[in-house]
Design a protein around this nucleic acid. Sequence first.
DNA 1: ACCTGAACACCGTTCAAGT
DNA 2: ACCTGAACACCGTTCAAGT
Lengths: 185, 185
Amino acid sequence: MKAHPDTAARRADAVRNRSALLAAGERVFARSGVDVPMEEVAREAGVGRGTLYRHFPSREHLLAALMEEQAARLTEEARRIVAEGPLWDGLVAWLRLYDDGLARFRGASVHVGSGLTGTSPIAAACGPMRTAFAELLGRARELGLVGPDVTAAQVLAMVAALPKDAATGGAEQPCLDIVLRGLRA
Amino acid sequence: MKAHPDTAARRADAVRNRSALLAAGERVFARSGVDVPMEEVAREAGVGRGTLYRHFPSREHLLAALMEEQAARLTEEARRIVAEGPLWDGLVAWLRLYDDGLARFRGASVHVGSGLTGTSPIAAACGPMRTAFAELLGRARELGLVGPDVTAAQVLAMVAALPKDAATGGAEQPCLDIVLRGLRA
DNA sequence: ACCTGAACACCGTTCAAGT
DNA sequence: ACCTGAACACCGTTCAAGT
């Protein structure tokens, strides 16, 4: 991949396999969670184990590639809210989107929560999203909508780590609502 | 173990090995996190793998045994707060103790968060603590200190899942403080 | 009754051989 | 250049043999 920055120069089977792996990863992770044996992803894509590892050197690389599209949408949305407002309602809506996105693959939140900081493939995939959210949170802070001591990395990590509502014994109020109340200045 | 409910009837080496395993588990989990290879625990205790699995059939059984003492302390403390008050400050202090306790072993929060409900060994070890905390939260709810839609299982799962402050990029305000603000009615 | 360590199973990752 | 599946490594768990 490094040797072939432009798709045209890559062999047709390599291009085909890569998209088959992405599609298979999407289905298998959605069905069985991100900790499923990698072999299942390879089988679903109809390729050998080795081919999977050639395209994605680790589970996190595959997960990061799958999340990139979604992260791009969230980046876009954060910028739109900064430009158009309203800031508080936008912030709330954005965090709901973010939370929902992490629910798509069972087990993804653990990888995202620990991968947001540092140099993991996931950190790289989420970099622009983090920056855009930091901008949004900064504006909200300037308007006094959230406290001065809350950081973007903290909020992203905290919301990513929230237990799924299924795991909280049928509580009426989602955990995210509690955190949102706590954020509001 | 099942065949010998009273310690006196067990062979001396079995008794000795069990406490050596608990002491080793404490040290190794504290040093390397709860996902450390079980072999290290056995080696630190000076016994074979098989002996470890005879006493604790899985990693979760060992972790549950190690957490029992701490859970008992928290149970006690919750009852004291219910009896003596003050309820809100007591609730806050209790949740800080709970949060600190989970920080003792890196990785423990994942097992506790998912193990609180259900039938895991950890759920069994935490049962009395859950009940005592539910009582404490119920009293706070009656006084209108917390909202009516918050459940004990939810709060325990949520606080267990909070990212360690080291993972939030040096935020001024601990995540727990944000949740506590959100809980207060 | 209990202990031990070899053996088995599972899965992530690598790599020699093939096209 | 890329693919494949056999092979290796690691670790959780089991069990036959020993005391």
